[in-house]
Nucleic acid binder design. Structure first.
Length: 278
DNA sequence: AAACAGGCCTAAA
DNA sequence: TTTAGGCCTGTT
């Protein structure tokens, strides 16, 4: 990519966007720390680096892409978070701990596909599988002297057979990914339309994909389709809810941005330590 | 060695 | 409607 199309942009004040928390809170799998306090990744087929300097977060991208939307910078997280306070002392801790997280508006197909691969897996292995998927079937993107890869489209994956995915070592999830790719490529699963539909309808449509249940559909809804009221519950969330919320607790009390509350709870449960669950 | 990992599927009560 | 067992692969 030529220097002419490269853009370095100011993203946000450092207290509004914490790259480390945002990229490592569990919502995405492709951004990696580069050792200099920055993160490098690919979205929209475009490579970028994000770092903090002098109290601001900057982005150096390989070309134009909707980065402000990607980082959800038009949303007032402070205002939303205030609505979560007072639910319980534990919830206050979650909000404080997660301050700086922004829910990325990831590409729809990537979100669906990566969370299919995430099931019953740990994060390092998920990241490995996703990187092998991109290296094998994505487009190469040169960036600062190294070769990165875009996320492969559903159209590229749809014609493949499970054996073609063997190098990924994703096990029994291979046919799940291919079913999803085919449904999307053939237009039977219209992710753009589902993004505009109501959360529940979208959830039910996603669950028609083999290997997509309540949790994976919830993650696709929240992280890819922009359904911010989605509240996916995995084992960590189940533990946190059981330990710190009433048995009949209804996440709907968190309102139309319940998904952010979910992320705060999840991130605190995972990073806050096992001592939360003794 | 055996259990477990950020689920889901199928079969069977 | 809920429950048990199995599933690829990798790590502890």
């Amino acid at each position: 990519m030529s220097a002419e199309t490269r853009e370095k942009v100011y993203l946000a004040a450092a207290d509004a966007l914490d790259p480390a928390k945002t990229f490592e809170c569990g919502q995405c799998f492709r951004w990696r720390a580069d050792g200099d306090g920055g993160y490098t990744g690919v979205a929209f087929g475009t490579a970028a680096r994000v770092w903090t300097e002098n109290g601001t977060v900057c982005l150096d991208a390989d070309g134009p892409a909707p980065w402000r939307d990607y980082f959800d910078l038009e949303t007032d997280y402070g205002a939303i978070s205030r609505d979560f306070l007072g639910v319980s002392p534990y919830m206050d801790e979650c909000v404080a701990f997660g301050r700086g997280i922004r829910l990325l508006r990831q590409e729809k197909w990537e979100a669906l596909c990566t969370f299919i691969l995430s099931q019953c897996n740990n994060i390092p292995r998920i990241r490995g599988i996703v990187e092998r998927l991109c290296a094998a079937f994505g487009q190469p993107v040169r960036f600062h002297g190294e070769t990165l890869y875009s996320f492969p489209s559903a159209q590229v994956l749809a014609p493949l057979a499970p054996e073609d995915l063997a190098p990924l070592r994703c096990g029994y999830r291979a046919p799940y990914v291919l079913d999803a790719a085919r449904q999307v490529a053939e237009g039977r699963l219209d992710l753009d339309a589902l993004s505009g539909a109501c959360c529940g309808d979208s959830l039910n449509a996603l669950k028609c994909v083999s290997g997509v249940g309540e949790k994976v559909a919830g993650c696709a809804n929240l992280f890819g389709l922009g359904h911010r009221e989605a509240f996916p519950v995995d084992v960590w969330m189940r533990r946190a809810l059981k330990a710190h919320f009433p048995p009949d607790f209804d996440p709907a009390v968190f309102g139309e941005n319940a998904g952010l509350a979910q992320q705060y709870i999840f991130y605190y449960a995972r990073s806050g330590g096992k001592e939360n669950f003794v």
